[in-house]
């Protein structure tokens, strides 16, 4: 790594010009020991330029590749540039950087991936009934397949060790990757845990999951989750 820093904050962003500058500024203020990489997933607005102006590194995908591929670009960048850990943060401002220390701290205890969760304690999060049902279903599936409890498996606020990065370098789901990634970790003998964090209401943009695509999301993720335990191991 050119800057001598250990941790790379990866911010996948698609048309987030309203929030991206503020998010990068907050990250730089709260995490002086980390570099910030914005992966611009084919934005048509000024997301990339605004992030660069705030001092973030920016990798711009030539077309919209999906959140999973954008994240994997970040993982590849991290390992190629010698970082030892990565933090994933949404570009819409709902993941407060002041909570990042909790995630990175657990990484230091030897976990390979730490999920920042809205549900372990009552952190004031309320979603729609359908969304809560979906999250509960995925949580249960993960428990059934791995024997481990994660109450907020769809959270995109997470920290990863270099071992997890090496796995994701080789394979990371393309769309809706969060849940599948946990099973993938377990399949390859890596560990994950969860810490409670408080989150902000999103400042701009929309959830990547609309009501219409909700059904597809549930079916696709369920299928992927059920198949993953039978996939070839990536790590020897």
């Amino acid at each position: 790594m050119e800057t001598g820093k250990d941790t790379l904050v990866i911010v996948p962003a698609l048309n987030e010009e309203e929030t991206i500058a503020q998010v990068v500024r907050n990250l730089n203020a709260h995490l002086p020991d980390a570099d910030v990489l914005v992966v611009d997933d084919g934005s048509t607005d000024k997301t990339g330029d605004l992030a660069r102006a705030e001092g973030a590194k920016v990798v711009t995908l030539p077309f919209n590749c999906g959140i999973g591929t954008a994240m994997q670009t970040g993982f590849k960048y991290a390992l190629d540039h010698g970082y030892r850990a990565a933090l994933q943060v949404d570009a819409d401002g709902q993941h407060p950087p002041r909570e990042a220390g909790k995630l990175l701290g657990r990484l230091g205890e030897g976990w390979h991936l730490v999920v920042g969760s809205r549900f372990v304690e009552d952190t004031g999060y309320r979603g729609s009934a359908l969304r809560r049902f979906g999250i509960g279903l995925f949580s249960w599936m993960i428990y059934a397949l791995t024997g481990k409890r994660v109450y907020d498996p769809t959270s995109g606020f997470r920290a990863m060790s270099s071992e997890a990065l090496e796995l994701f370098y080789m394979r990371y789901p393309h769309d809706y990757p969060e849940v599948e990634a946990l099973i993938l970790l377990d399949r390859n003998g890596l560990t994950f845990t969860e810490v409670p964090v408080s989150m902000e209401p999103r400042k701009g943009g929309r959830s990547s999951i609309s009501v219409l695509s909700g059904a597809y999301y549930m079916i696709k993720v369920s299928l992927a989750v059920l198949v993953t335990p039978f996939k070839k191991k990536e790590l020897k």
Binding site: L61, G66, K76, Y77, H174
Partner: peptide
Amino acid sequence: NLALAQEVAMLKE
């Protein structure tokens, strides 16, 4: 195709 897109993006950077 996606792997190529990632490579191109990182090479450009």
